[in-house]
Design a protein around this nucleic acid. Structure first.
Length: 289
DNA sequence: AAGATTACCTGAAGGC
DNA sequence: TGCCTTCAGGTAATCT
């Protein structure tokens, strides 16, 4: 579910309430999405939250430990498809599939709910995770933030790639934060068919795509993200950007730009929506005999 | 070895 | 009503 605009909205919400508060207790139910449950239960109580950050689709809670041993902690949270992170009073009704409860020293509670448990939670201790010193390798492997990258960097990361442009936009090692919704919306805005190969985009098309990605993400953040099924922000409120979608889940409806009929196809293993008139399909290469 | 497919988990929606 | 299949915004592992 959550892509960059949704995670950014959650991060901003948490940033308004969490920094300065301490975790007083950690209660964990189902835990197959947590790297090291014992570490969370042992190290988090007493820790004070100093900052909330976003890195691609990851949320990062920076914490200061009360003890001298591990000084700094960083709780890394990925919401997967159905993850929710909400701050509420401790007596608020518990949503089904709520698996983690962090009690906070002001009496409130930070809860993690995740129906499908595709999310991830792991604790980085003094910047390093686990026994083999894996560090924040997960974060280091991520590509450029689409809102921070220059046009040259954006284009450079796609250049020469024979993969479909849709697959490249979705690849977190190329760009961090894009998902299925914003990829389709961006390609529509740039008038580029999702099946085009990255290497075949002209300089002009690449420039349009760069602009489209930034405009779509920025606008989606202003609308507090898209609530298609499960997404809500840190206070439990839905986003509104789904009302501005131009192609996503609009198969059979009219294109807002040319009046053509929005189509749907599987590209890069994901269902993809596009206007076959404004986003011309790549010409099939004739098979050599 | 890059690119494509499959697996993971639960729930909602559609067909019969 | 109910049973069955398909699909869902995420990545990671496995193939070719």
């Amino acid at each position: 579910m959550p892509e960059l605009p949704e995670v950014e909205t959650v991060a901003r919400g948490l940033r308004g309430v969490l920094p300065g508060k301490s975790i007083t207790g950690a209660r964990i139910g189902k835990s197959d999405f947590i790297d090291d449950v014992a570490a969370l239960e042992r190290l988090l109580p007493g820790a004070r939250i100093s900052a909330v950050r976003r890195h691609g689709k990851f949320l990062l809670l920076d914490l200061e430990s009360p003890s001298a041993e591990p000084r700094s902690l960083c709780l890394l949270i990925h919401l997967g498809m159905t993850g929710r992170l909400v701050v509420c009073p401790p007596d608020a009704p518990i949503a089904p599939h709520t698996h983690v409860f962090f009690a906070l020293d002001d009496g409130s509670e930070l809860r993690y709910t995740d129906i499908r448990r595709f999310g991830k939670m792991r604790l980085l201790v003094d910047g390093v995770n686990g026994a083999n010193g894996g560090g924040d390798a997960v974060l280091a492997a991520l590509g450029a933030d689409p809102l921070e990258a220059s046009e040259a960097e954006f284009a450079g990361r796609m250049r020469g790639r024979r993969a479909r442009i849709k697959a490249l936009l979705l690849d977190q090692r190329v760009l961090r934060g894009m998902g299925n919704i914003y990829t389709d919306e961006s390609l529509w805005r740039a008038r580029i068919h999702p099946m085009r190969l990255g290497a075949n985009l002209s300089g002009e098309e690449m420039r349009r795509l760069y602009r489209a990605v930034r405009d779509v993400l920025a606008e989606a953040i202003r609308f507090r993200g898209s609530s298609v099924s499960d997404y809500v922000d840190s206070s439990g409120q839905p986003g509104w950007f789904q009302q501005r979608h131009r192609v996503y889940r609009r198969a059979g409806k009219k294109c807002f730009r040319c009046g053509g009929t929005i189509g749907r196809a599987t590209v890069a293993g994901r269902s993809s929506y596009f206007c076959p008139r404004c986003q011309p399909a790549p010409r099939k290469r004739r098979r050599a005999k």
